[in-house]
Design a binder for these strands. Sequence first.
DNA 1: AAGTGGTCTAGACCACCGA
DNA 2: CGGTGGTCTAGACCACTTA
Lengths: 257, 257
Amino acid sequence: MPPPSSRLVSSAPRYQQVAEELQNAIARGDHPVGGLLPPEPQLCSQFGVSRHTLRDAVRILCDMGMLHRQQGVGTRIKRAQPQQRFVATLDSLGDLMQYTQETRLNFLGSRWLEVKPPLSEWLGCAPGERWLELDTYRAPLEEDTPLAHMKVYVRPECEGIAKDIRDGDGRAWIYGLIEQHGGEPILQVRQTVSAVAMPKESARVLHVKGGSPGLQVRRQYAGADRVLSISVNVYPLNLFEFMTTWRLREASPDPLG
Amino acid sequence: MPPPSSRLVSSAPRYQQVAEELQNAIARGDHPVGGLLPPEPQLCSQFGVSRHTLRDAVRILCDMGMLHRQQGVGTRIKRAQPQQRFVATLDSLGDLMQYTQETRLNFLGSRWLEVKPPLSEWLGCAPGERWLELDTYRAPLEEDTPLAHMKVYVRPECEGIAKDIRDGDGRAWIYGLIEQHGGEPILQVRQTVSAVAMPKESARVLHVKGGSPGLQVRRQYAGADRVLSISVNVYPLNLFEFMTTWRLREASPDPLG
DNA sequence: AAGTGGTCTAGACCACCGA
DNA sequence: CGGTGGTCTAGACCACTTA
């Protein structure tokens, strides 16, 4: 077997070359979407590489979402083109609550309620279930001008959160409290941003006119198989922007650090 | 060498165990942040695994952003805790313009302007530069009720975009047009969502009252070293929600498919 | 039972970096 | 130059799926 280099053009590692050739073959339609790739041993001999090298190549295409490997079955072609081109990352949800550091969470009250649509849909539960509603607002550390009105809905077993917020130092972090009281890790967060006409209740808290423009940010915190909690934030005009940066997946990993 | 299993508790693959042990060691401070991990051969004997298995383990921690490998130097500890816990992905920006399929982009007009703040900041250029402003709106395919008012700002060399939109079939896709005319791939998209009081101009286009609540979605399309274009969308109340789902990085890759 | 991908080993050579 | 991580091979056994 000749050494892997000694080619003319290619200086790229063999597994990258194989990945590229495979990608081209799939894009060309040699392997139809939905079908199975030939077994690894066959591909190995076809490309003249060891199984390990081939698997490194296949891994790349899996990461790009084109292939899906399943033990005992085979490698299925999911897409002819790479998906997930853009990726956004969060450092442990720090960005989601970016200004937690400079603000304080204040307790207004809490009450039990039987949820109705659309709340029940947001919670992923049947109408009529009992959840605890926490009424809070967020303000700068030294002032008391509210920046946001927030309602949080938690399951009965997380009732203790209310006390933590009421008696805490205001540095509480909904995300952490949920994991702590629910005893279940948060695996997924879904965030929905929309425009709202300021509801009366929020308007009163935020000292703005009812019906004036506002931003509603709804966050759904989910565990393995159920919604653990949701929060609904309302921000007045000009006080809040939500920014997300998407990077090309292939691009160098975070040039900023 | 005993077979890799025959332990009591662990059924997880050895490389995952090693990754976990390494992660714990780093979290404990055995290997200080900023320092170098012991060389791979040493770690191999320490964990009693082959170099390949060890490298699989190290790869996991690299993916979690805790380690950084550099050929000829070593493996440096970047963080004691995993970063980038949550990840959101976009399928080639399909979600960003999710309803492109069902709507049409309509041309209203275009004009040259010398940009001023805040536009110049959004464009990442000096005030006074000349950009082309495209005025457009988006409506359902069969109707003409506008769903969104959109302004797009492009560099002079992308002037042709105006013609494409005006004379096109309305299925044009800003993202694609920019890459096509600019001759430069888009590497990053930054999206900023905020509440707005409906500007007069948008209000007229959207047939709503000026000053009524609206959602502004600003998108900055950037190439390798400069902003290629930005678009500013304004949506009326109740017609648009922006949703993002963040998943735990370690979680299984997209249970929904 | 046969065939798939998943894991692991032992050993080799290379490209790169810093002293 | 010596040591690092990067790549690659040949071969082995295992876990899983399907029939």
